[in-house]
Design a protein around this nucleic acid. Structure first.
Lengths: 226, 226
DNA sequence: CGGAGTAATCGTCAAGTTGACGACAATCAC
DNA sequence: GTGATTGTCGTCAACTTGACGATTACTCCG
C-alpha cells in the first residue's frame, strides 16, 4: 500500500533576460557536491513554512537582487525522477522568471559564482542534475507565451519603444519581424500598450514610449513562423 | 540558512470527461481524516522510487481502470502552501487527465466511493484541501488547450465524427459553434484529422469517421469567444 | 414507394487580418 | 543644407473568419 515517502523540496529558477542583443540565462557555479564546480540553475531548498511562490521569490532576490514586484515569475513544472539527485529523493519545482537586463548578477549566498550565459551557448556546458531539460522547457515556455501574452514587456525596462519590444521578440524567437507590421499589430491590440505621450530619440526619428497595458492576453496572438 | 525540510509528496488528478452531454470530473469520497467523508480529487502518495508520471498513471489506473496508453495525462501544477494539509507539509503535484467516457468508475482502493460529477455542480460541494482551486486550474487548462492542440480527440473514443468533436468543444467551452465553419476548420488543418474512409449513421446523413491525426498543435488555432 | 425529418457537407460572400513593401516623418552628424 | 537612420502611416493582394444558404444522404413513417 501507499507508504508516504518523505522527499526534499527545492525550487529552481530559469531566469531569462535579453542582454547584449541575446537571450541569456542566469547560471551559478555550484560550490558543493554533488556536481561541485558544475554550472546549474539558481535555486535552493524550500524553507519551513514557506509557500512555493515565496521560495521562488526569495531565491530570485538572493541571486539577482530583483524583488518580485519588478519581475514576472511563474511556476514552470515539477521534476521528480527518483534518480535525478544522487543524494536521494529531491524534487524540484522549477519556475520561470523574466527580468529586464539587471547588469551584472550579485554573487548569491550558496553560489560560488553567478553568470549570465547566452542560451545558445549552454549546450556546450554540462549543467548539473536535469537542469538542461528544465532550461529547455523554460525557454520553450517563454517563446510560446510571447505569442499570446504581454510578457515581452517583462523583459524590458519601463517605458520602452515598439522597436525595443520587437527586438525582444526577434531575439527570443530567433527570427526577424517586419517593423511596420509589428508596429501595426502591437499598437492595434487594445490594452496591450499604454502610450505615455513621451518620446525617446536614439538614432533617427524619435520613438514613442509605452508601458505595458492592462491586457494580460493578446487576442489575436502575434504568430511566429512554424 | 536553508535547512532542507522533508515534505510528503502526493499526486492529485483532475480527471475530466464528457459524459451525458456534460463536462464531468471524477471525484472520490475520502475515507479517512482529514476531510473524512468530503469529496476530493483522486490521488495519493508518490511511492518510493516512483517518478511523477508513473505515480499519476498508477493512480489513474486505480481509480478508473484506464491505462496510460488510452488517455492524455499531463502535469498541471504543483501546490505547496504550508497550511494546505493539516497533517503537516504535504505538497501535491496535480495532473490533468482527459479520458473518453468510461462508464461508471471502479471503486478505488483508497476511495470509499467514486463518482462523476458535472463540473458546474461542484461549487456546491466543498472539496477537500485546495482541490477546488486545483480543479478550476485544470478546467481552465483544458479549455485553453482545446484551442491550439489536438486534445479534443482525447475526450472521445476513436473513431469519431466531426459533429462529436464539435460537441466536445461546445460542452467544454460552454458556447455553441457553427457546424459548417467548424467542419471547414478542422478538416482544413493539415494533420489534425485522419479520415478513416468509414462512415457512421445515426440520424440524417451519414458522417465520415476520423481518428486523431499526427499534428500535435493546431495552427492556426480554433478560437473561442472572448 | 414517397415524402418529411434530420444531420452532414459544400458553397458563397462580406468583413477582417496578415504579409510584403512603398512612402513619408523626424531626428542626428556633418 | 544633405545624407543617413529609424519610426510611423498607407496600400494592396492573399488569406481567414463568421454568417448563412443550398445540397446531399440517410431514416422513419405512412
Amino acid at each position: 500500500m501507499s507508504e508516504p515517502v518523505p522527499v526534499l523540496l527545492t525550487v529552481d529558477l530559469v531566469v531569462l533576460s535579453v542582454r547584449a542583443d541575446d537571450l541569456q540565462v542566469l547560471l551559478v557555479r555550484r560550490g558543493i557536491e554533488p556536481y561541485a564546480d558544475a554550472w546549474a540553475l539558481p535555486g535552493g531548498f524550500v524553507l519551513d513554512g514557506e509557500d512555493l511562490p515565496d521560495a521562488a521569490a526569495r531565491e530570485l532576490a538572493e541571486e539577482t537582487g530583483f524583488d518580485r514586484a519588478r519581475v514576472h515569475v511563474e511556476q514552470l513544472a515539477t521534476y521528480g525522477a527518483a534518480t535525478r539527485d544522487p543524494r536521494g529523493r529531491v524534487v524540484t519545482v522549477a519556475h520561470l522568471a523574466l527580468v529586464s537586463d539587471p547588469g551584472e548578477p550579485r554573487g548569491g549566498s550558496d553560489a560560488a559564482e553567478a553568470a549570465w550565459v547566452p542560451v545558445r551557448e549552454v549546450p556546450g556546458r554540462e549543467l548539473a542534475f536535469d537542469h538542461e531539460r528544465i532550461l529547455a522547457d523554460g525557454i520553450e515556455r517563454a517563446r510560446a507565451k510571447l505569442e499570446y501574452s504581454a510578457l515581452g514587456a517583462a523583459l524590458l525596462g519601463s517605458p520602452f519603444t515598439v522597436a525595443e519590444l520587437r527586438r525582444v521578440y526577434e531575439i527570443v524567437w530567433g527570427e526577424s519581424l517586419d517593423p511596420r507590421n509589428f508596429h501595426r499589430k502591437v499598437t492595434g491590440v487594445a490594452g496591450f500598450l499604454e502610450p505615455t505621450g513621451e518620446t525617446r530619440t536614439e538614432r533617427g526619428r524619435p520613438a514613442a514610449l509605452f508601458t505595458a497595458g492592462p491586457a494580460g492576453v493578446l487576442h489575436p496572438p502575434i504568430t511566429r513562423q512554424r
